[in-house]
């Protein structure tokens, strides 16, 4: 594939540009309309709320950057919850991607009955949250939980998984990795889309399974890995429901995620203006990191059919 040279003659481009522009917008039209109708309005509204004292039950009152100033100067929970979220995000990104990719490789082996096995592996996301939360409370129980029973059976000390501030956040990470079947499903689809002849060619070249994995699978899968990294990152920065159900942010705020903080400010404290300011700060952080991820992606994501670098 030849890349279009940077000094591609300009006039030729312009001649087609109107037709191309119309065609392009016909294709992306649905989402453009969708963003204008369903997303921009609410986003602008929340941006406005972030500049107000809006207690939901009373009309918003404009206060300029007061919420932001309070956030960065006097709110001790802002830094705490942001730090919990960042630490969780880092641990989850590394562990989650590795485990999901390995599981996907296992689930694309050509053996009989794979459809059934895959379904078993996807089970954690099929089961409704209420059941999952109950299960993990049980698994992690320090007194009668099966995990500690196993630890004690092999002579290790039991761990106070959810009850101690040292381990509670990591317990959340393990749980999230275990329920990370969405990532696995997408890796499975990505692996299935890799043409088999590439593997066959590498096999003929004598590459063993591990070599083929790094020489063929990873580069061919890089767009999928990139997708999972970006969405996993965005998702991990917005994680909070299991913490809300299982630990309520404790103990000692060790699982007080940023979005749990936003939820409490908005719906328990009824301070929607302040919650909106918090949301916009997170939005800007996520966007900045995503832009960096996209910039860096040019170096390692390989698109077979792309003429972009």
């Amino acid at each position: 594939m030849t890349a279009i040279p940077a000094n591609f003659p300009a006039p030729k481009r312009r001649r087609h540009s109107w037709r191309k522009t119309i065609e392009g917008y016909l294709f992306i039209g649905p989402v453009v309309l969708g963003l204008i109708i369903w997303t921009f309005g609410p986003m602008i509204a929340s941006a406005y709320y972030s500049l107000t004292d809006y207690r939901i039950v009373q009309p918003p009152e404009f206060i300029g950057f007061g919420n932001y100033i309070e956030l960065f100067t006097t709110d001790r929970l802002f830094i705490q919850s942001l730090s919990v979220t960042v630490r969780y995000g880092l641990m989850f990104m590394v562990l989650g991607q590795i485990v999901s990719l390995l599981l996907a490789v296992l689930l694309t082996q050509k053996v009989r009955g794979m459809a059934i096995f895959r379904t078993f592996f996807y089970m954690p996301i099929i089961v409704p949250y209420v059941a999952s939360a109950l299960l993990w409370r049980y698994l992690y129980n320090k007194d009668f939980g099966p995990i500690n029973a196993v630890l004690q059976a092999i002579g290790l000390d039991p761990i106070n998984w959810l009850g101690s501030p040292e381990s509670s956040l990591f317990s959340m990470v393990i749980m999230s990795v275990w329920t990370g079947a969405v990532t696995t499903i997408i890796y499975v689809a990505g692996l299935q889309q890799i043409p088999e002849d590439l593997h066959d060619a590498a096999k003929i070249d004598g590459a063993n399974a591990v070599q083929r994995f790094f020489a063929v699978t990873i580069p061919m899968l890089s767009p999928t890995i990139f997708f999972n990294v970006v969405t996993g990152f965005i998702g991990s920065f917005q994680f909070f429901v299991p913490a809300f159900l299982m630990t309520d942010g404790g103990p000692i705020k060790s699982t007080y995620f940023y979005n749990l903080n936003i939820y409490e400010k908005a719906f328990r404290w009824l301070e929607m203006g302040y919650a909106s300011a918090m949301a916009w700060v997170l939005f800007i952080i996520i966007m900045a990191i995503t832009v960096v991820l996209f910039r860096v992606s040019n170096r390692w994501v390989y698109y077979e059919g792309s003429n972009e670098r």
Binding site: G24, I28, L35, S46, A275, M287
Partner: peptide
Amino acid sequence: LEFPGRKVWFGLVLASVMLPPQVTLIPL
């Protein structure tokens, strides 16, 4: 497809999931 504004709109599509949904619930 190549057309002006493509990257911007793609950026906006992605950005739309970055704002925590709790604060757009009420306007929506």
